[in-house]
Design a protein around this nucleic acid. Structure first.
Lengths: 96, 96
DNA sequence: AAATCTTACGGGTGACGTAACGATC
DNA sequence: GATCGTTACGTCACCCGTAAGATTT
């Protein structure tokens, strides 16, 4: 499991749609689909139920979504915690 | 940034040694080294100072270690939170 | 010379995009 | 027929291992 799996899953789960997630992530649908399948395979749990009317979260999927979001928040926090390169101007400090 | 980067960094930081991390992870040293360099590059921060007498954590590296460990704990928690295949016996439920 | 990290390089796996398929409306 | 997800497949990137280099003790 890598953060990529969580990113893709969160995008799909948040939009309840593979195609919408594909657009948001700028990644082709089959890649998203495959990644989610791989994730479900690794966890040995069905996270989504693919109905005719789009996608629904299973109970496990709902639980995992919360967990995954927690992981991503912390991962983002880890990056943010790093002192990025500071560009000092005459009057201010711009972080970038 | 992927969990792989954090796993490798944590291993190096915990042992203050690339070679020891290599042994623990069963991954060749150059792969570890490259991954850490990539991570430092992405974060735009030096995490380790490679001295003659092994490796030391920079201030940023020390901070990032704590953050990275937090991420890994949550990532593990996410997996653990999933109902793995349950084997029901007469008196108990064994998760495997 | 031994130990350690980095740089160089080649190969195999896998992540991705395109295309084709199946299903539902 | 349009939309959505999956399967099939070829390609390119990248992760890793081996080898060589640089530095320190």
């Amino acid at each position: 499991m890598e953060l990529r799996h969580l990113r893709y899953f969160i995008a799909v789960a948040s939009n309840l749609s593979f195609s919408e997630a594909s657009r948001r992530l700028h990644v082709a649908q089959p890649a998203i689909s495959q990644t989610i399948l791989d994730l479900e395979d690794e966890l040995a749990v069905k996270l989504l139920s693919r109905n005719s009317r789009g996608v629904e979260l299973t109970a496990a999927g709902n639980a995992f979504l919360a967990e995954a979001q927690g992981v991503m928040v912390r991962a983002d926090g880890a990056k943010k915690a790093m002192p990025s390169v500071s560009i000092r101007t005459r009057s201010s400090t711009i972080r970038g």
